[in-house]
């Protein structure tokens, strides 16, 4: 029983990372209709910078904030390149994000090398209902929950959030009322970058990061996001948590080698079912 509780909490912690990556994908897709394949790279960049800042003696909190800020900046840069030119189609922008993700590999290897890195998070062991697990998993959940609450409040209750939602809801109407949809797209990329960065700095203490860790993150993040048709952040959250828990249970009771396959099978199943019901996923999102 205590094993199960341990797996569940560990899975929720890992899933929170996927959910943050997924919500970044959703934030960007809703406003720009672009699937951002550089999303996992924001987490990697943020984690690598945080490891450097901590090694340089910066305190916890400041170093992590620096990592998240780099994620946001990287998001903005990807946004400028991907959608900066008026008239760029979402398909073209998708390829641009893929290219920038590969370019990021070169930059990361050049600066940080190709060996795995990590940094200490919250140390110690927590005991929850008889299960003992690294306390850092609880920190991940304690940070992720208010971040999602903050996002829900921002998108529903602030005028800037409403304007972002308006671009997602009816792009033409947003232009009619004077909203600069391109600028909103860049803001969405920046928010997506920050969310990806947060995923990176939160999960790296329990999962080492290398320059190509973005593949795992984007596959799992996309699988979580696609559950809600890439447009619903709260379903992406649920999807991320579900994936994390499922993978941990598979690893705990079966074999750790099949974790990625769980995400791929889930993603393919959802896409096939959605395509069979209502046509291709991007079109159903409108």
């Amino acid at each position: 029983m205590s094993d199960l509780i341990g797996y569940l909490i560990t899975g929720l912690g890992i899933g929170a990372g996927f959910a943050l990556v997924a919500s970044g994908l959703v934030a960007i897709y809703r406003v720009t209709r672009v699937v951002n394949f550089a999303q996992g790279g924001f987490a990697v960049l943020a984690a690598l910078l945080t490891s450097t800042l901590l090694a340089a003696g910066l305190p916890h909190g400041v170093a992590e904030l620096g990592g998240v800020a780099l994620g946001a900046l990287a998001g903005l840069i990807v946004g400028v390149v991907a959608i900066g030119r008026p008239g760029t189609s979402p398909g073209t922008s998708l390829i641009v994000t893929l290219g920038l993700g590969v370019l990021a590999y070169a930059v990361e290897v050049l600066i940080w090398g190709d060996q795995p890195r990590s940094f200490p998070g919250l140390t110690g062991v927590a005991e929850v209902a008889g299960a003992r697990l690294p306390a850092h998993y609880l920190l991940i959940l304690a940070v992720t929950a208010p971040v999602f609450a903050l996002m829900a409040w921002f998108f529903a209750r602030t005028d800037l959030g409403r304007a972002l939602t308006a671009c997602a809801s009816n792009r033409y109407a947003a232009q009619v009322v004077g909203i600069d949809v391109r600028r909103m797209g860049l803001l969405a990329f920046t928010i997506g970058g920050a969310l990806g960065g947060l995923a990176g700095v939160l999960t790296t203490p329990v999962q080492q990061v290398t320059f190509d860790s973005d593949v795992t993150l984007i596959v799992n993040g996309f699988a979580a996001a696609v559950l809600g048709g890439l447009t619903r952040p709260m379903i992406a959250l649920a999807g991320g948590l579900l994936l994390g828990v499922t993978q941990t249970l598979v690893a705990g009771y079966g074999g750790g080698a099949y974790q990625m396959e769980v995400a791929l099978v889930l993603m393919l199943t959802v896409m096939i079912v959605q395509a069979a019901r209502t046509g291709p996923v991007p079109e159903t999102a409108r």
């Binding site: 409403r162 304007a163 809801s169 033409y172 109407a173 004077g178």
Partner: peptide
Amino acid sequence: REMFPDMTVDDNLRLGAWR
């Protein structure tokens, strides 16, 4: 008409004053 269909009437109106 070009509404923001998932938003309330009040939110639709507020967005009219975006500028």
